[in-house]
Write a protein that binds this DNA or RNA. Structure first.
Length: 409
DNA sequence: TCTGGGGTCCTAGGACCC
DNA sequence: TCTGGGGTCCTAGGACCC
């Protein structure tokens, strides 16, 4: 009997993805600190002499955050998630470019299809990163996946002109940590024996799943590195972090992770939200809020239709001027993809919220999704157990969309 | 002038049913 | 009069990730 082959899981992460895509079309910016974010204004302007002029961080006013920045900008202390206004204090002369998701999605498709030419078992993890299972790739076991990883990097560069960082490890958890170790343009191999020397010295927050809150709580107990965490008593971790999370922290610190590479999964929810340019009040700005609310519902309905889903639970999200958020949701008797039905359900949710404070964000969410195929499948049945036709399963009506925002509580 | 928009997963209490 | 579990659904909030 032969032993099962060692799992070889790659994590591939594009280097400063949005910023690198922008540098492809604005090569004159190469080497400069460049930041992506802050909305859709501040487009570069082509001047009469044929050169471009770019907005600088110091010119910006608004509520945007940094989505990505070049390594030159990061060296100045600018990081993703940071408010643009705050970043402007650190790097006022850095170039600011608007976000162009269509362009990034185009390059995302390009690099992912290049990867799939090399290896078929690919898990999508958003626009700029993926996991790849190399375990059964011919030849991969011979060199622990090194040549396969190099092949992936070469394929991505050939297809896009962009660099990425790849790590190959026994599982997703370690591969994810590993791809950051040699960025940019990295190629990292991690074997089970590398845990103590290469993983344990790292900060605990390098583990995917240990965020700001857990990091702070761990630090309060004197746990700073992954090694500190590995040395902690698992019973103690469970007592302080809960049965599930505490046990997971222990496993993660020891580099154990059996999650498979998943090549497809159905979405659980689809949503639309927007942050207003200025905070709005439910009564004073009622007309504007009503318009935005309806627009979000119309967009959400279009998203559902385009992707082929119907939803049975509609929810709203509000964020107030003090940044506190609340959610409300409502389950319907039948699935819907109809804008008016969504708008009415979302309006019911809104009635359950105290609207004294001003709002900075409004969102609408569809969950409990079913594919249209599921809804028409023979096994789809009505309350009496009889097969139901699609038009009977979808709650749809022609109520007017613009019925205004409900009165504040 | 702090803090976008799109997601996933987990917890926890109450309703309701067996 | 007091006292069971288990299972599922609904709802709200929060941590976390890209």
């Amino acid at each position: 009997m032969t032993a099962a082959p060692q799992r070889l899981i790659a994590h591939l992460d594009m280097d400063a993805f949005y910023a690198s895509v922008e540098l492809l079309r604005y090569p004159d910016l190469r080497g400069a600190p460049v930041v992506i974010g802050g909305g859709r204004r501040h487009q570069p302007v082509l001047r009469a002499d044929g050169r471009r002029s770019y907005a600088r961080l110091r010119d910006y006013a608004g509520r945007g955050v940094i989505t990505t920045s070049t390594y030159e900008a990061r060296a100045l202390g600018v990081h993703s998630g940071m408010g643009v206004m705050k970043a402007a204090q650190l790097a006022p002369d850095a170039v600011l470019l608007p976000i162009d998701f269509d362009e990034y999605r185009k390059y995302s498709r390009l690099f992912k299809s290049a990867v799939r030419e090399v290896a078929a078992l690919v898990e999508d993890r958003g626009i700029d990163e993926i996991y790849i299972d190399l375990t059964d790739l011919p030849g991969a076991q011979r060199d622990a996946g090194r040549s396969a990883a190099q092949q992936l990097k070469d394929a991505v560069r050939a297809a896009t002109g962009l660099s990425c960082s790849v790590a190959v490890a026994p599982n997703k958890l370690l591969a994810k940590i590993g791809s950051e170790l040699d960025k940019p343009d990295g190629l990292t191999l991690l074997a089970p024996g590398d845990l103590q020397a290469r993983i344990w010295p790292l900060a605990a927050k390098k583990v995917n799943g240990i965020g700001p809150k857990a990091t702070e709580k761990l630090a309060a107990f004197g746990i700073h590195t992954i090694g500190d965490l590995a040395a902690a008593d698992p019973q103690w971790l469970v007592a302080h972090f809960g049965r599930h999370y505490g046990a997971w922290l222990h496993e993660a610190a020891h580099g154990r992770d059996a999650r498979p590479v998943v090549t497809f999964s159905e979405p659980k929810s689809i949503s639309r939200e927007t942050t207003f340019e200025r905070d709005l009040h439910a009564m004073r700005d009622r007309a504007e809020l009503g318009r935005i609310f309806t627009e979000l519902c119309v967009q959400l309905a279009a998203d559902l239709a385009r992707k082929g889903y119907a939803s049975r639970t509609i929810g709203i999200k509000l964020r107030f001027d003090d940044f506190k958020a609340v959610t409300r949701d409502l389950s319907l008797p039948a699935h819907t993809m109809d804008a008016a039905t969504i708008r009415r359900a979302a309006g019911e949710c809104l009635k359950r919220v105290d609207l004294t404070r001003r709002l900075r964000l409004l969102g609408v969410r569809a969950s409990a999704l079913a594919t249209l195929a599921e809804l028409v499948a023979p096994r789809a049945t009505d309350a009496a157990g009889r097969p139901a036709a699609l038009h009977e399963r979808l709650a749809s009506d022609n109520l007017p969309l613009f019925d205004g925002a409900p009165p504040p509580a």
